[in-house]
């Protein structure tokens, strides 16, 4: 049942996550202007991490109020999902005010991405419901129906509990529990090819490190990129080893990438969206996984039989990140 969303909406303590499927500039502004204006009027920090065109549009409609709006070009506000989450958390950390919620317009870039990247961003949209839960943030994610593929628009209704139409809040009946959504998206990484270099299973960190270094150097990485690749593999392996597991490694190359598959035959806790929150002051078992994720082009962590599998894609030779 649609409801009118006003200044008093979404004032619960936690994270509120809505989509907005718009088909014209007017529809975008019908949602964005009252959302921003009401937030600013309530003294809330408001961020628009949207396309440059949408920023310009919004500024034009806000008039003098635009001076109080924080803006970021969405393409630079986290190139990959793990960076996007960090960007949200950093904005919250830097601008939060006691007793006040904050508002964010967050429009991902969907065009020009590979199918793998689109799937990762969809999963992240779902994951935000878990990762930002508890933060006093009202986030609306605009989807430009003139630009996004149909499957992306469809996914928006599965990854957001509700969507905005102007000021009206419409529940998304297809909204999926985030863990179930991720589980339902199927295997994320293809298994290692038979010709991949192998190590283990081993419980020795030093053996993992030497193997990682040897393969990274063999793939033509040097200097900083070599060291970061070794660190990524070691931190991912460390996550599995910390659970008392032994890890088998496979390494192989694809054009532009060096891939690593880390497999543990023993059970290992792998919560959905593990390793998306940056390390804080207190240590967390997922810290190393976050670093591995941040240093990789992509990282897939999933259950494999009774055990767990982590697959990292690291930028290889010829890849200019």
């Amino acid at each position: 049942m649609p409801t009118e969303a006003g200044p008093g909406d979404a004032e619960g303590a936690g994270f509120v996550h809505h989509a907005c499927l718009y088909g014209s500039d007017a529809e975008f502004l019908a949602m964005a202007v009252p959302f921003v204006r009401d937030g600013l009027a309530a003294g809330e920090p408001v961020l628009a991490a949207v396309t440059p065109a949408s920023i310009e549009l919004l500024r034009g409609a806000l008039g003098e109020r635009a001076y109080a709006l924080d803006t970021a070009e969405t393409a630079g506000f986290g190139r990959r999902p793990v960076e996007r989450v960090r960007a949200f958390l950093r904005y919250h950390e830097s601008r939060s005010r006691p007793g006040r919620r904050m508002r964010m317009l967050a429009e991902p870039v969907w065009t020009g991405k590979t199918a793998r990247q689109v799937a990762e961003w969809k999963r992240m949209e779902s994951g935000l419901n878990v990762l930002l839960a508890g933060l006093p943030v009202w986030m609306i994610c605009p989807y430009d129906l003139r630009a996004v593929p149909a499957d992306v628009a469809e996914a928006a209704c599965a990854t957001h509990p509700g969507r905005m139409d102007g000021r009206r809040l419409i529940p998304c009946p297809g909204y999926a529990d985030p863990a179930a959504y991720v589980a339902g998206t199927g295997p994320q990484a293809a298994p290692a090819p038979a010709a991949a270099a192998r190590l283990g299973p081993t419980a020795r960190v030093a053996a993992v490190r030497l193997f990682a270094r040897e393969r990274a150097a063999g793939a033509g990485l040097t200097g900083e990129r070599l060291e970061l690749a070794v660190l990524a593999v070691c931190e991912a392996a460390g996550y599995l080893l910390a659970a008392g597991a032994r890890v088998a490694l496979r390494a192989w190359e694809e054009p532009g990438f060096l891939l690593w598959e880390l497999h543990s035959a023993q059970a290992c806790p792998l919560p959905a969206f593990a390793g998306f929150r940056p390390p804080g002051v207190a240590p967390d078992p997922e810290d190393g996984l976050w670093l591995a994720r941040s240093l990789s082009e992509s990282l897939d962590a999933e259950a494999a039989g009774d055990g767990a599998r982590i697959t990292l894609r690291v930028a290889g030779r010829g890849f200019l990140p």
Binding site: R209, C234, P279, G288
Partner: peptide
Amino acid sequence: EFLDLGGLR
């Protein structure tokens, strides 16, 4: 030569 996240912490 190598310093992991735990060491940095």
